[in-house]
Design a protein around this nucleic acid. Structure first.
Lengths: 210, 210
DNA sequence: GTTTTAATTAAACGATTGTTTAATTTTGTG
DNA sequence: CACAAAATTAAACAATCGTTTAATTAAAAC
């Protein structure tokens, strides 16, 4: 499906509101007002509020799909390099696209729209299979250990990253850290720490114990 | 606040519906119908739908609070034992109380009710401080290493557990596992695997490298 | 320039939302 | 039993929901 500029602008507006107030908490009039358009345009372009949501998922998931694909093919990278790059890209994707990730997580929890459930399910399985290939490759090359639970490993990457992103505000005042940091600098520091943390965990999960 | 049987029954019904359809996706008439009461009873007992939600959080969070408290005090346990028990209890709590955890996570994401946001925030900070005490104790006793990022560690525990719980259906057919398992047996197996996984990660995070 | 198509609008639609009212029934108390 | 308090009810409330209609404007095609 192809969308024109106006449609993309509506989708973008909807993304922001869905992330802030949830799908059911956002009215089509909210979207229309923020986007500066007439309410009827939403039905006109998308058919319904549900289908507007589906269009959002279609676009975003398509974009996510493409990125991981190319990583697997790269022959110049070692399995460990691939895994580390995957971690960094995952974190980067979550931070920059946190509005959509919020919506996606909510949708996984609530689970009302079958079309979206299917899209998310396919994406997750696909990712797991791609990572499984990397792991299998590493095992054959003798750098990864034999028994690796790929699903649990991915759950650690995604879960830890997500948990860190969602609750970073809660813990801002927890650690007696350098308070002179700006908000942006704080976030960047958090991302770096998280990246190293997950990489360390993955090294343990994947490589032979000392 | 104390609630009578009827109020508790309404709260319990609401919990189920909120978990399935979300707060905004659930109408007071839905709740009334499932609970087998008149719609007006919700306003009569709780004042509003929002306050019904707050009552749910009040009850549930109170219960969660109490459990962790006693663990810290136990003098007969080593720091490592405490951590491992914490992991198992956390997983057990998530699995048995997944309806509420769903709602709580959604509420963290959407963040509209200040009263609830405060309650959740307090709970999280409290937990982090309790765990921090355990870690400090272990460091003083020389069994935990010096540099431990407690927040990241907790994010790994909660994030990994939650991610596993939420997406266990997606991956049911992923691993070429023993298919003869019943659903309940599968879930129990999943919990055991998860528990061992997180414990392994924590051992790495907390103890000196070899 | 005229015709056709697409875009945009305000208004109305019926359904559903959370809450309140006022009447009635049930329960507890003396 | 009589009285007061609590519980429960059906009905009504105004507000908002997503969507549709029918009319109008803008753009594209011939």
């Amino acid at each position: 499906m192809n969308y024109n500029d106006k449609q993309l602008q509506i989708i973008d507006t909807a993304e922001g509101l869905f992330a802030d107030k949830g799908f059911d908490g956002t009215s089509v009039r909210d979207i229309a007002e923020v986007a500066g358009i007439n309410v009827a345009m939403i039905s006109y372009y998308f058919g319904s509020k549900e289908k507007l949501m589906e269009a959002l998922f279609e676009i975003k998931i398509e974009r996510i799909k493409d990125r991981l694909e190319s990583l697997l093919k790269d022959e110049t990278l070692t399995p460990f390099q691939k895994v580390n790059i995957m971690i960094d890209e995952q974190i980067e994707r979550m931070w920059s696209g946190q509005r959509f990730y919020k919506i996606m997580l909510c949708e996984q929890l609530i689970d009302t729209n079958p079309s979206i459930t299917r899209k998310v399910s396919e994406l997750k399985l696909r990712n797991a299979e791609l990572v499984n290939k990397i792991v299998k490759d590493g095992q054959e090359k003798g750098v990864f250990k034999k028994e690796v639970d790929v699903v649990l490993m991915l759950n650690t990457m995604i879960g830890t990253s997500w948990q860190t992103l969602v609750s970073q505000d809660y813990y801002k005042n927890f650690s007696a850290e350098d308070m002179s940091l700006t908000d942006d600098a704080y976030k960047e520091q958090m991302k770096t720490k998280l990246s190293n943390h997950v990489k360390t965990l993955f090294k343990i999960i994947l490589s032979y114990e000392a």
